[in-house]
Amino acid sequence: MYKIVKAEELADKIYLMDVHAPRVASHCKPGQFVIVKLDDKGERIPLTICDYDKEAGTITIVFQIVGASTEKFSKLKAGDSFRDFTGPLGCASELVEEDIESLKKKKILFVAGGVGAAPVYPQVKWLHNHGIDADVIVGSKTQNMLILEKEMEAVAGSLYVTTDDGSYGRSGMVTKVIEELVNEKGNHYDVCIAIGPMIMMKFVCLLTKKLNLPTIVSMNPIMVDGTGMCGACRLQVGDEIKFACVDGPEFDGHLVDFDQAMKRSQMYKTLEGRAMLKLQEGDTHHGGCGNCGGED
């Protein structure tokens, strides 16, 4: 059992938890992820690592409610436990493996969308701790879905916050901010790291291709084991098929087939929707609307 030592609601439907998992904490690096399973009957859910404390032996996870399992996670309080917590999985971010001196010469731009701010944060923090200040764009649908603004501010070079509806910070999509920084302000970046919803990463990549700005994305497709065993997370990257769990989760964004990846991520939507309904309706759930023939 893996004890939750802290649990808080960061924003609307977005939660943060510190979980005691010393083996994971002792080996984890920015860019990696964990697989979390609630109880005997639970699913294995991949979640990115937001932060880690090697001394306390804890891992910070951030997740948004997207289905029945994350809905159940959100009900947990400090003192509760996850039955299983495995990791760190996947490869560490390329940045942390690079030579620090050559890294110091680079101008780095991070683009985070929604809960994507969570996996971006440890990378920016790691760079900051190594004397490198990266620029960070954080995008969110609205003000009450914005997360980690203060934390990001403390470690970023310049932080640009934008909301789709203009309720806070700048107004508009993250791509608008990238264009502004590069085209209007004339900023030069050597590399862009974009993490967020697939549709955001797709449009960031379309733009950075035009801007000739190399872009790394972090993929979070459907997974089961997270160790290379099932192949559910396979992606088309250039001419090759890659497994996000062991070859990634980071890839060259200009080579990823996002359209295919987005279609693949829809595979269980109907089943997920039914599971969510069953959870919400509890004992009143009857497996159908009465006209549709139920779950058959």
């Binding site: 083996r23 002792s26 495995t86 990791g87 999985l89």
Partner: peptide
Amino acid sequence: ETNVVIGKST
């Protein structure tokens, strides 16, 4: 000990 991925967890 379950949930230990050798090569990753240690």
